[in-house]
């Protein structure tokens, strides 16, 4: 059973701030969903390799060639806050 404390911890890991009402709701809902997932415990998976991907994916390499970049101006066009050709953020350290 997931507790409010665990929900608070997970929210912090996920960088989400929840109000008291949300904490309570998510605790109830996640508990119900996780209880449903418990059916997986009956499945015998001894010796079964985890499957991360349906395809047999290998690292794809490409030739080390210069491709013209889209340009800083275009990439900065969606910046919520910029200064010159930089993304500006609030202070990171004192």
């Amino acid at each position: 059973m997931i507790s409010i404390k665990e929900v608070e911890h997970v929210a912090k890991l996920a960088r989400l701030s929840l109000n008291d009402e949300e904490k309570l709701l998510y605790t109830q809902q996640l508990a119900a969903i996780l209880a449903y997932f418990d059916e997986l415990k009956q499945v015998d998976t001894a010796g079964v390799e985890p499957l991360a991907h349906s395809l047999a994916i290998d690292s794809v390499m490409r030739a080390d060639e210069v491709i013209p970049p889209p340009g800083a101006e275009l990439l900065l066009s969606g910046a919520p806050c910029r200064q010159g050709s930089y993304f500006r953020v609030p202070k990171i350290a004192e």
């Binding site: 997932f37 997986l40 415990k41 499945v43 998976t45 079964v48 390799e49 985890p50 499957l51 991360a52 349906s54």
Partner: peptide
Amino acid sequence: AYYKKAQQVRRLIK
């Protein structure tokens, strides 16, 4: 308990 188990059962489904 959750993620790895799910990936193992994913293989069984495949």
